[in-house]
Design a protein around this nucleic acid. Structure first.
Lengths: 149, 149
DNA sequence: CTCATATAGTTTCATTTGCAACTATATGAG
DNA sequence: CTCATATAGTTGCAAATGAAACTATATGAG
């Protein structure tokens, strides 16, 4: 009853955090160095590139970023002319954000690099392993609740 | 050549980050609320509980925490009487840290709770899935380099 | 229509984090 | 032994992050 067997090394939240930090450190340094983008800014670009214009709230939901960070990231992107805001006809409290031509251009530059970095990380994973890994991550995420940012 | 297919939703670094944040948010809130510990402090306790006294440097390596955070976490734990420092006979620049009786007591309280939270997260994973997941995380971590914190 | 309450987004302020500089000790060359 | 350089750990300062307060608009009750 008294001897606990928790080895940090085998403790899932620890392993997950270490892996995530390792990946994130490496990749975010690259976004930043090469394009001057922070992670939330990159995520907003990616979401906007996938779809059409949307509100900050919708962006935050899609990119899993809290509204404060969305606000700051959007301000930075607008400042750089990568996205634009227009009034939201349906709700005067918010607005609609969309990529500019420059924004699309930058995204088109980054996306292949991002995919290449992912490919490098997953280099020795079979397709089956990738799918498994993805599925396991989603299950963990679901089990951890709808929280996070 | 022009249409990029990067869906953020399926992008590994994103998935990993989201899963890790979800888990970490939930678990670290619990450490903090119930025991007043931050994640690095908890990690130091766990490492010290597994082994014997060690230098800040060894602790940092074992817990994957940079030296600044080790320094701050150790200071907080010493302040609370959970660990003690004694001179390092082999090197006057560093010192040796070890759990106090209180530190062991607190660890003994937390460890089962931490394991229970882990079990909850992994509730619907088979043993095989857990092992797979762990192995995949380690491979990713290795591929991402020896960086991180 | 008016008011009370709720929501979208922003800003301010306190806390946290990370880098760089610093102190103290160690080590190796001469 | 003395000096130059390297390493362990800490601290000061600046940037990043998060919570709470704030502004503006929306909505629903009466």
């Amino acid at each position: 009853m008294s001897m606990m067997t928790l080895r940090l090394d085998a403790f899932l939240p620890y392993r997950l955090s270490v892996a995530s930090n390792a990946v994130s450190t490496r990749i975010s340094a690259s976004y930043r160095r090469r394009f001057g983008l922070k992670v939330p800014e990159w995520r907003l670009l990616a979401i906007l590139a996938e779809g059409s214009e949307m509100t900050p709230q919708a962006l935050g939901n899609a990119a899993r970023i809290d509204k404060i960070s969305v606000s700051r990231a959007a301000a930075a992107l607008i400042e750089r002319g990568l996205i634009v805001a227009r009034a939201n006809p349906g709700d005067g409290r918010s607005h609609l954000l969309a990529l500019t031509t420059d924004g699309r251009g930058l995204y088109a530059e980054i996306a292949p690099i991002a995919l290449a970095m992912e490919a490098e990380l997953l280099g020795n994973f079979s397709q089956e392993e990738r799918d498994q890994f993805n599925a396991l991550l989603r299950r963990i995420e679901a089990a951890a609740g709808t929280d996070s940012a």
